[in-house]
Design a protein around this nucleic acid. Sequence first.
DNA 1: AATGAATGAGGCTTCATTCAT
DNA 2: CATGAATGAAGCCTCATTCAT
Lengths: 208, 208, 208, 208
Amino acid sequence: MSQPQTESSDRHTQILDAALVCFAKRGFHQASMHDISAEAGISVGLIYRYFENKDAVISAMADRHKREIHEVLKRAQQAPTLLESLEILFTAHCCEDAPQLVSAFVVDLYAEASRNQRVADLVRDVLQTAMNGVTDLIARSPEADSAPRGLKPHELAELIFAVSRGMLMRDVLQPQEMTAAERRTRQLEVTRRLWSLLFKSENEPAYA
Amino acid sequence: MSQPQTESSDRHTQILDAALVCFAKRGFHQASMHDISAEAGISVGLIYRYFENKDAVISAMADRHKREIHEVLKRAQQAPTLLESLEILFTAHCCEDAPQLVSAFVVDLYAEASRNQRVADLVRDVLQTAMNGVTDLIARSPEADSAPRGLKPHELAELIFAVSRGMLMRDVLQPQEMTAAERRTRQLEVTRRLWSLLFKSENEPAYA
Amino acid sequence: MSQPQTESSDRHTQILDAALVCFAKRGFHQASMHDISAEAGISVGLIYRYFENKDAVISAMADRHKREIHEVLKRAQQAPTLLESLEILFTAHCCEDAPQLVSAFVVDLYAEASRNQRVADLVRDVLQTAMNGVTDLIARSPEADSAPRGLKPHELAELIFAVSRGMLMRDVLQPQEMTAAERRTRQLEVTRRLWSLLFKSENEPAYA
Amino acid sequence: MSQPQTESSDRHTQILDAALVCFAKRGFHQASMHDISAEAGISVGLIYRYFENKDAVISAMADRHKREIHEVLKRAQQAPTLLESLEILFTAHCCEDAPQLVSAFVVDLYAEASRNQRVADLVRDVLQTAMNGVTDLIARSPEADSAPRGLKPHELAELIFAVSRGMLMRDVLQPQEMTAAERRTRQLEVTRRLWSLLFKSENEPAYA
DNA sequence: AATGAATGAGGCTTCATTCAT
DNA sequence: CATGAATGAAGCCTCATTCAT
């Protein structure tokens, strides 16, 4: 009767939240519109008042992913040290109440990108923006000076993002029972190892 | 019931070859059995003589992927230097006449793994085997001594595979027109950069 | 529940006007209630305040058609000559600002009549009334004497209405660009030819 | 087991026969694919092996209608007298075991033509061909000389077809119980009346 | 009176799978 | 061994209708 606070605020959000769960659990094309509507607790038809069709839902998910990555990037840019920036970037997807959801979604997004030009363009754009941001971050950080073997900031950023994507793929292999905290710990380990490798000068002690 | 060794083996290969093309082009669940049969130039029914159902085809693809990775690993182990081993590992998927096919397939495989336990187990197993192999390779190589910051071989292997997977994901974003050679070049660049980072002592000159 | 006379009458008209446009453009069953509400510039729900359901709208359209035909008949009866009466009957549907609308609607009405008893009864009734009117008109007109081959007034009326309906069907085949004036001209040609055939004695000159 | 003689000869025909029944009974857009498959005694999916989609079924029906009209025209052209030619044209749709089916279908076809360009073109083409054929028939017949009031053959044909279409529309108003024979009788009455009007010289006795 | 969000049944279409030949 | 016609469940989407505001 009375508009439920949590969900009614934005049907778009509600539907996309449900879609994330379904897409992560079953994949873009295995998740049915009925699955999504059930997860959202609404009728199928209602989805079509907010999205033209299923592809539009997928696109909107991709768009939202883009905005979320921009958010993460912004937070990373405000971190006091480069290491902390990287930690934010590498653990952004572990903070959810539903761990692994995001990883599975992103891997699916890349899979979709390989055959859906619209999605490919968007993902490439997100990636480029994020990499530019990190390249900047590196260029301005004091650690950049100690960059090993004359690697340029953008080359470092490229490596960092490769590792980040690679860890995401690995994440989907983890048994579902693994908690967000455990995933986070693993991500942090690799992050610090990578940071230490890329930015710690030879004579500093390794990250404790 | 009894699978004729000689011929069935051919058919299996023929069907799986077709499936690779279809799966890469359209995804596991978007590719239809008819697509596969058409690509293979046989009838739909015939596929069911060799595979119980579509899931079995996917599983067989995963199995074949496992064997192929083992092949690659074996070749990598026989390379004279660690750098060359890594080059083999990082460019294995670029040699095909149909570039990007393998990348798309592998990304799809991980996506599938996130919701299909059987596939997840297999992929995890492949990954573990390959990582063990590379860990060994590193442990035995002279470069291991110069490993920076006391990173242990298995930690180095973990980083290497993370980068490898990450590059694979990136590969699916490349425009379809990019040739195998171009992809290979890009992979080699990153491989050498990574090798240089991990295994070249500070005072050696960077890879030319 | 109680239908306010003044306003509901307006609303009825407004909705039926919109329905005519939609039905003609897309057919009874292809036009959605939303189409009609949009065309009328009101909300969907409002239609249900004035009509029980979609079938009721169709029925009301049929009813209005009946009244309009009665109007036309009345005007035809007041024309000074039989030829002019026929001209009114044959061109009644061309005077609209939206030519072809009425033709398409009437053809649809007959199509609907073939499977909707309620509509069939109504259309048959309209037809009978109109034919009776014209039969009378003929019986009283001086031209009736020169009727060829002893055709009786009601037989002549039957022919006239057959031609009239036939011309309506033809009208829907005309390209949409044809203007009301052009349609009218064509109708008049046939009307005069028919009149000349039925009512001009052999020795009179043909209609100029 | 063994291919049933009657139906397997041509699935296309079988499906179109079923579609005629359904379309006539419920209209193009009210008849569901399920209705058609049930009427044909096959599964829904099978229809899609023979027709790309529902529109293709409608188009095929229209095409078949075209061929049938051509058949009728051919038969009409071989009739010994003009009157008999007209009788064939006017009663072609009454010979079916399912009277009124064809009338309803044709009226629906015209209704569809008013909003489906593809159908409109086809119907216009059929009409033109048939009218040309009849125009010829008239021009060559001895009765043409006694044509009243100098009406040219193509004008006579136009009138004849208008009446024919008009009678078709009337036919759909007949109660479903009316038999093919009764419909036929009525059509013949009008045909002869029309023929008598158009082609009998003034001093000949009216058709008995 | 008026709105338009919401529902859910039903229509079109696809596709994994079977089976007669 | 091989084919491909056939099935029918299931997915996407539309739309008549209702109802809280």
